Simulated assay, not measured.
Amino acid sequence: MTETDPKKDLHRYLKSAREALLWKVEGLSEYDVRRPLTPTGTNLLGLLKHLAGCEVAYFGDTFGRPFTAEPMPWLEDFDDDPSVDMWATADESRTFVVGLYRKACAHADATIEALEWDATGHVPHWPKERSEVSLHRILVHMLAETNRHGGHADIVRELIDGSAGLQQGNENLSPVEGVSWETYVARLEEVAREAAQAAGKSPGK
């Protein structure tokens, strides 16, 4: 059995999750890349902006490795607006936000490569009893965070133009041989209604 390096394994999966997220903002207009498509305002550029801050905070500040490549003044405004990092202003172009995210990830990568698996740091905004963390824990946390928001991006992009899948060339969608997506969705709707009727309830109740 081939031996594996846990730090390298998690880092590889994190890099893959980042690239999947970046793919979701390609080929869209400045309007589509930032417009809200859920009742809570979820939008693609906001997800990238948020995750750039997460990469900087968890792999930079936590381990005493400040990020100096780009100012991020909105990180000081959470008390006034907790959602300040979840959307991009009209002046923050896609090029800027994507570039910021790549710089933040590069800074994070340098931390991951420089520190040992069990290196410890401190997350100021976490409860005191669990604010001391290892690089291992932060890697797991950021992998979960990035994949969670990657799922949000999947849905938002599909709502914009129907584009779906994990990565370019590796969509990772269940094959529906000889059946259109419209037919497949209609079948699921029919099953949902049958289940609701069997439970003695009207659909949507």
Rank of each mutant, 00 (worst) to 15 (best):
Y184C: 13
F59E: 06
T120F: 07
V133K: 12
A164G: 08
S83P: 02
L45F: 03
T42K: 10
S93D: 00
S174P: 11
L47I: 13
V156D: 13
L143S: 14
R193E: 14
G151Q: 07
R137D: 11
T89C: 05
R35P: 07
E116K: 06
G27R: 00
Y184S: 11
T4N: 10
L143I: 11
E92Y: 01
T111A: 09
F96W: 09
S83I: 01
W117D: 04
G165V: 11
N172E: 11
A186V: 11
R187G: 15
P127F: 08
H141C: 07
A195D: 13
D79T: 12
V133M: 08
R130H: 11
G178Q: 11
G27V: 02
E177R: 15
Y58A: 06
T89M: 09
Y184P: 07
P71A: 08
R130F: 09
T111S: 15
V98T: 11
S134T: 15
T62P: 09
K7Y: 04
I112S: 06
R148H: 14
A104D: 01
M1R: 04
F63V: 10
L100M: 03
A186Y: 13
D154Q: 00
P73G: 10
E55K: 02
I112Q: 09
S163K: 07
A52P: 00
E182P: 06
H136M: 05
A104R: 10
I155D: 12
I160Q: 02
K8I: 08
K8P: 00
T2P: 14
L166K: 14
F67V: 02
L115T: 04
R12M: 09
R102V: 05
V179R: 13
T2S: 09
K7M: 03
R102W: 01
L21M: 01
S180D: 07
H136A: 07
E177G: 11
E116A: 12
K103A: 04
E116Q: 09
W74P: 02
E129G: 05
A114G: 05
D61Q: 05
V133W: 09
T38Q: 00
